[in-house]
Design a protein around this nucleic acid. Structure first.
Lengths: 215, 215
DNA sequence: CCGACTTTGTGCAAACGTTCACAAGGGCGT
DNA sequence: ACGCCCTTGTGAACGTTTGCACAAAGTCGG
């Protein structure tokens, strides 16, 4: 139980549920760091992130033993460890396809640039939009997908185009080498194995809310 | 097992995981209806929604027995039943607080109006924005929250304001009578019991993607 | 140096969700 | 009317996630 080649996390996968909460912890940790708080207990951090303290401890234990018993966690050190686990110590160029309202919102989104993400390019198919400047980026033609992905080494793409063309854009992104896709179009994307898709569907969220509101 | 006051669904709650998938099924069903397909098997519908067919059948069984063995499900009938369960047979006025990029995108979002949701009002605190027209709605002052919620009977609110003021807006919405909140601000909202909050955080989704992209 | 106190990290059990596999049950051709 | 075929609905097994409760381990005062 003592000799390991690498950290616990690398040997056996971290549960998906834990991964989904790490960004939440990270955000809470940054808020603490901004207030110059150097150390935090699992109880406090859990409250800030809106979760149970036992869950938080178990989640963090998957990354390793980065706390000090009787004291808590060092904020800066934990920020570094969580960031490293999430792969945020490197820079992630992201290509946004679709410069409509959602694409613009995404390009302008503050939280975007703050955590290692960078808009590599903003693409659209509308000749009236191509060439205009949004959030400091000159909008390029959607036909540039392949060279943008190749030139900038993009692995993450955001799809903010109408539903009917989303699958086509997705196929081109995947063919160009993108392995992770954030899909805002209300369609189920069909992708080959190894490609990761996360969907954000405002309509679905509203419908879930409606269910609860109706009781 | 035969005498019931109401349907199965009302007697014992439908699992949250199932609720979250019903809008997905509904979307697939509408797509089938658009293609004039009258009947569908669990296998086909599951493929269209991107889930396992056993899961789909179990999910639908929570609403009741609306299929026909050996045949499948009647598309229109199932649309009605799922819509009813989600509470989409009624009209839901939604108030959007924050007319920034995200608020505009939301107000312009097509899938918004299509499923029984309606923008009751679009609010902002910026005097330069108040009075302008976005997606057919004249932007009103954020101080009108209380009267908009009261006058229009709003139960659902979307928060697209900066993180620092989100909790304050949330408090006012709740005090005014809103029971369901869609939060786009990157903060954990503190709400009294009985109020339902769903969060959409683009940054969190990207970080999860980064983890998988990094392997 | 020791003992009291605090907080982490984790075994364990319960709750929840998913998937399999098949009996139950309806349609359809004969 | 009957038997075959198809698909639903569901019991049971399995895997994942949560939460409790506590031992392990560190700090700190004396």
């Amino acid at each position: 139980m003592s000799r390991r080649i690498r950290s616990d996390s690398s040997l056996q996968g971290i549960p998906e549920a834990t991964i989904a909460r790490l960004p939440l912890y990270l955000r809470a940790l940054y808020a603490l760091a901004d207030r110059d708080i150097a150390s935090v207990s699992s109880e406090e951090l859990a409250a800030a992130a809106g979760v149970n303290s036992a869950k938080l401890r178990k989640d963090l234990s998957h990354l390793g033993s980065y706390g000090t018993r009787g004291v808590g966690y060092d904020v800066d050190y934990l920020i570094y460890q969580v960031s490293r686990e999430l792969g945020l110590t490197q820079d992630w160029p992201v290509v946004i396809v679709g410069a409509g309202n959602l694409g613009r919102a995404l390009a302008n989104y503050g939280g975007f640039a703050s955590r290692g993400f960078r808009v590599a390019a903003l693409l659209d198919s509308d000749p009236l939009v191509i060439g205009s400047v949004i959030a400091g980026h000159r909008v390029r033609a959607v036909d540039d997908i392949e060279c943008v992905v190749a030139d900038c080494g993009v692995m993450i793409g955001a799809i903010t185009v109408p539903a009917v063309v989303a699958q086509g854009i997705c196929d081109r992104l995947v063919a160009a080498g993108v392995t992770s896709i954030l899909n805002f179009a209300p369609v189920v994307l069909d992708v080959p194995g190894g490609v990761d898709v996360r969907k954000v569907d405002l309509s679905i969220e509203l419908q879930i809310l409606a269910f609860h509101a109706q009781r």
